[in-house]
Lab assay of single mutants.
Amino acid sequence: MSIQHFRVALIPFFAAFCLPVFAHPETLVKVKDAEDQLGARVGYIELDLNSGKILESFRPEERFPMMSTFKVLLCGAVLSRVDAGQEQLGRRIHYSQNDLVEYSPVTEKHLTDGMTVRELCSAAITMSDNTAANLLLTTIGGPKELTAFLHNMGDHVTRLDRWEPELNEAIPNDERDTTMPAAMATTLRKLLTGELLTLASRQQLIDWMEADKVAGPLLRSALPAGWFIADKSGAGERGSRGIIAALGPDGKPSRIVVIYTTGSQATMDERNRQIAEIGASLIKHW
């Protein structure tokens, strides 16, 4: 067993022997301040990774656009098919120029040779490549099948209805392509620590998230040296922004954090800054 596999296998073990965790309302004060600064709703939840206990939450059962955070769930569904012998990570998928959609920095470079399922998941999570996500959605049967996968996990809230990039439209009061912070946090925890996926697939999923290259201005910008984070960000229309993450000190994750916002007129930089400040408060009061 590799060191990384050992780390993920012992996530519940280490967490069980940690000192009790206590909620700190100071972080919620910052979440509410972010709402004021952005002029928009902000949803927040913080779960203990081992027990699933909610440590703090704000608007945990209000719907927010998922945006690209759905790509972690998508690759979880792909990995479940791999575990069941219905898919192979090494299978190569070929596609054409007509398949390319807006923001496809990886797939646009491989029109000639195609990409493997493993490479597509890596591109979808680490670079948020939209064509990679659409190609992977095709392998599982489309958005409705991802929703069905989530329902089978016990998540009857999260739903995907459309493809990239239309799913980022974020129309107010439109339930399409949305989740709730509580539902997303619980589902992410199941994917990373539950028995739904094999140990190898859980490790692969967290490795992809740990290698995320496009979430630097968010929670990662607030992390002290030595902290662990595996995350996936999302951005959408109407001032929408979000991030889902597993993080913790001492090089291992111990909490799940989900943050979503929508309806702001603020710039992307300002949305990023507010999420980073929430992260800084979380870490300060850990």
Rank of each mutant, 00 (worst) to 15 (best):
I259A: 12
S233D: 15
Y95F: 10
G242K: 10
G279P: 13
H151I: 09
R202W: 02
T158E: 12
R92V: 13
R59M: 07
G39E: 09
L160Y: 12
W286S: 03
F149N: 04
N272M: 04
D113R: 07
A225V: 06
S104V: 04
L47T: 04
P249N: 01
F70M: 07
A245I: 08
A280Q: 15
E237Q: 15
P224M: 15
I256V: 10
T179Y: 15
I275V: 10
Q204R: 01
E237D: 04
E166Y: 05
P105I: 09
G263I: 00
L136E: 11
T131K: 04
T186I: 11
Q274G: 09
A124W: 04
E46T: 06
R176Q: 05
R255H: 11
L55I: 08
T69I: 14
S221P: 15
Q274S: 11
A200Y: 07
T186V: 09
P60C: 09
T147W: 05
A77G: 03
G142K: 02
L135H: 04
T116D: 01
S122T: 11
T107E: 03
Q88A: 12
L49G: 00
L135D: 08
A77R: 06
G43N: 08
S96G: 07
I93H: 00
V29Y: 15
L196H: 08
E35V: 02
R41P: 12
L135A: 05
D113W: 02
L49C: 00
L199V: 06
P217Q: 06
D231N: 14
S57T: 06
S233C: 15
D212C: 15
P143K: 03
L136D: 02
L150S: 02
L28K: 01
C75F: 01
R220S: 09
L150E: 01
T178C: 13
G52P: 08
W286G: 02
H110A: 03
L191P: 12
I283T: 07
K190R: 11
G154W: 08
A222Y: 15
M180C: 15
F64S: 07
M115L: 08
D83L: 14
I54Y: 13
V214F: 15
S80D: 11
G85D: 04
W163A: 12
V42R: 08
M153K: 06
I256A: 09
H24P: 00
L205M: 09
Q97L: 06
V29E: 09
I206E: 01
V31G: 05
K284P: 05
G52D: 08
S264N: 01
E166G: 06
I229C: 11
L111M: 08
S201K: 00
L55S: 08
R81T: 04
Y95Q: 14
S281I: 04
D36Y: 12
R91S: 03
R238A: 01
R176K: 14
S264F: 03
M153D: 05
V82R: 02
Q265N: 12
N152P: 05
D36P: 13
R63Q: 08
F149E: 11
L135W: 05
P217I: 12
R220Q: 14
P60A: 04
V258T: 03
V157K: 07
T112F: 14
E108Y: 07
L137Q: 03
I259H: 06
R189H: 14
T158V: 10
D155G: 08
T138N: 13
H94I: 13
Q86Y: 08
V101Q: 13
T267W: 12
I125S: 07
K53T: 10
K190N: 14
S264A: 01
L74D: 02
E46N: 04
T69N: 04
T262P: 04
D83T: 02
E175P: 08
P181T: 03
N272H: 12
A246W: 03
M209A: 05
N130Q: 15
E195M: 00
Q265P: 11
T178Q: 14
P25Y: 14
L199F: 15
L282P: 10
K32V: 11
A185P: 10
I278Y: 04
I229T: 10
T158R: 11
V72P: 13
G141Q: 01
I283H: 06
D129G: 01
L120E: 08
I283E: 08
G248T: 04
R271T: 13
M67Y: 12
P249H: 12
F149V: 08
T131F: 02
R202F: 06
G141F: 03
R91K: 08
I54F: 11
A230G: 13
K144I: 11
E61F: 07
V117Y: 07
H151G: 04
R220D: 10
M180R: 09
A230I: 06
K32A: 09
L160I: 00
K53M: 13
F70R: 02
R59K: 04
T187C: 07
T179R: 13
R189E: 14
A133R: 01
V117W: 01
L89G: 01
E119F: 01
A200N: 06
K144D: 01
D231Y: 09
L188H: 15
T193E: 12
M184P: 06
K190P: 15
P105M: 04
A230K: 07
L192C: 10
R118G: 05
R81F: 01
G194D: 04
L218P: 15
D177G: 00
Y44L: 03
S264L: 04
L136C: 07
S254W: 13
G142H: 00
K32C: 10
Y103I: 09
W286H: 09
P143C: 04
R273T: 13
L196A: 07
T198Y: 03
R159C: 14
D174Q: 05
I45L: 12
N134M: 03
K71Q: 14
F58P: 01
R63S: 06
M153P: 02
T198C: 06
D174C: 06
